[in-house]
């Protein structure tokens, strides 16, 4: 069953239109990867889905029409976003950042505390710095924090914009393992933007190829990498 479905999604910045009516679908339990060159509109797609920029077209999430819903309400529907460039709260402590991530939850302080514990165990570097200001973390640490913060809301769908940016290869691998495990064990659906095609294709259920605001190809990871022209032009391996 499809969790997120966008149809004819058009969005841009002021007078500039970046996305020209794209169709996109994420089914429950899928990890969907968006690939594309720099400036293709991947981040814009994420923003259009999360409602942080004006958009038109149909966007449906979990049976609700969210095309006119404000970003904060979309989060409450169960969509969490890890924005490109992290967007943590620099003046707040690491722990408060995580608590802010859980601010929409209604399942009680105990459950939130348990999740906090869980992510601190997952990311021990964050645990060591739990009362430090987020602004004083290293870039990679902030990236971990941003992901953990998004997960604190217990989303149904995680929008992840280049989570590997600035992370050491080992950490990236670990991170993707975490995402895969959440997907496998808890049915978390993921819409992932990733430059590292090789790595991303590995875990993708399906892939969209974006070029200057249009989807030029889509299909399973196997299908796309089987297509020679696509592989040479876009995937670079």
């Amino acid at each position: 069953m499809s969790l997120l479905r966008a149809h004819g999604l058009t969005a841009g910045y002021g007078p500039v239109t970046v996305l020209n009516g794209i169709d996109l679908e994420v089914n429950e339990g899928e990890i969907v990867v968006i690939l594309g060159a720099n400036g293709a509109g991947k981040t814009t797609t994420m923003r259009a889905v999360s409602g942080t920029i004006p958009r038109s077209g149909a966007v449906e999430f979990d049976g609700h029409d969210i095309s006119r819903t404000s970003p904060d309400a979309i989060v409450r529907h169960g969509v969490a976003q890890v924005p490109q460039g992290r967007g943590t709260f620099p003046e707040l402590s690491v722990e408060d950042n995580l608590r802010a991530g859980a601010i929409t939850r209604r399942d009680g302080a105990g459950a939130v505390a348990a999740d906090l514990q869980r992510w601190f165990e997952q990311f021990p570097r964050l645990a060591e710095r739990r009362s430090q200001r987020a602004g004083s973390l290293s870039g990679g640490e902030q990236q971990m924090l941003a992901i953990a913060r998004a997960l604190m809301s217990r989303p149904k769908l995680l929008l992840c914009d280049e989570p590997s940016l600035g992370l050491a290869p080992l950490i990236t691998k670990e991170l993707f393992e975490v995402i895969e495990r959440l997907n496998r064990e808890e049915g978390l659906s993921v819409l992932l933007v990733e430059q590292n095609a090789n790595l991303a294709m590995h875990m993708a259920s399906r892939v969209y190829l974006l070029e200057t605001g249009r989807i030029v190809a889509s299909g399973s990871a196997a299908e796309l990498s089987a297509d020679d022209t696509i592989r040479k032009a876009y995937l670079g391996f």
Binding site: S50, T52, V75, A80, P83, G87, E91, G101, I103, S153
Partner: peptide, 23 residues
């Protein structure tokens, strides 16, 4: 929670929206 939301908005209003705070 209100205080946390206020601190979050003060720190980064854009991100506050992205964690579901009604800014």
């Amino acid at each position: 929670k209100l205080g946390l939301a206020m601190n979050a908005v003060a720190s980064n209003a854009e991100s506050a929206k992205l964690v579901g705070i009604r800014t």
